[in-house]
């Protein structure tokens, strides 16, 4: 038990410290690195309470995919060079908007947490036998039976957001030369090579 609590405090201290560093660090890329550290330590905490599937999924989805794209964008924009106007005292339009959004999210969290109620029979649910089934099986048994509707709706919302993102950034570009693999492979010498007699002092017109 002692070792367990040592590890628990180790990971939680790292998690809290790195989440503080995410918002205080001046360099945006460092912020993202701390965010990644935060994700990893939260994943480790999940594994420690026995939710190994959730912990691994956090590592795979957030650290392995989402944070990589984050890092990608932040590095490409090179926002590390920007001075934060909050500290210098210049007028900024972002901060009031950000404040409004964060207050809204805080209120929403309060509403949700305040009205939190477990499903009546969450422990005695017929599908959930707590004994000797692995974590992953348990999750599957609950998710695909009692909560199938929410599961599917969440999937559809994700699909919609994906289509939305593609629609927002998609533009048909004209004049782009594309390689057609079929045409390229099905070409033969007779259709692609032409021999021409060149007369002296006349030249020859190609590309006709």
């Amino acid at each position: 038990m002692l070792v367990h609590s040592i590890f628990f405090y180790f990971f939680s201290v790292i998690a809290i410290f790195s989440s503080l560093m995410v918002i205080t660090s001046r360099n945006t890329v460092n912020s993202v690195f701390f965010l990644i550290l935060d994700f990893i330590s939260v994943g480790c905490l999940f594994i420690m309470v026995g939710a190994e599937f959730l912990g691994m999924i956090i590592l795979i989805v957030y650290v392995g995919a989402v944070a990589v794209l984050f890092l990608f964008v932040v590095m490409m924009l090179n926002v590390a060079e920007q001075k934060q106007s909050w500290f210098i005292g210049k007028k900024s339009t972002h901060i009031p908007t950000g404040l409004i959004v964060s207050v809204l999210i805080l209120l929403e969290l309060l509403v949700v947490v305040g009205g939190w109620k477990y499903k009546d029979n969450v422990m005695s649910s017929s599908t959930l036998k707590l004994s000797n089934i692995s974590n992953t099986h348990q999750l599957g048994l609950v998710m695909y039976t009692d909560y199938i509707l929410y599961f599917q709706i969440a999937g559809i919302i994700l699909l919609l957001s994906m289509i939305g993102a593609i629609l927002l950034t998609f533009r048909q570009r004209k004049g782009v030369k594309k390689q057609s693999y079929f045409n390229q492979i099905s070409r033969n010498p007779s259709s692609s090579i032409e021999l021409k007699e060149v007369e002296t002092n006349k030249g020859v017109k190609i590309d006709a």
């Binding site: 890329v29 690195f33 990644i36 190994e52 599937f53 691994m56 999924i57 590592l59 795979i60 650290v63 392995g64 995919a65 990589v68 890092l71 990608f72 590095m75 692995s134 974590n135 992953t136």
Partner: peptide, 25 residues
């Protein structure tokens, strides 16, 4: 010998990209 061995392998191999990004940046 952990329950989620495959996921662990997949997670660790997907973290491998960080070494390269960090070095490059």
């Amino acid at each position: 010998d952990i329950n989620v061995g495959v996921l662990y392998l997949f997670a660790v191999s997907s973290l491998g990209v960080y070494g390269i990004i960090m070095g490059g940046w």
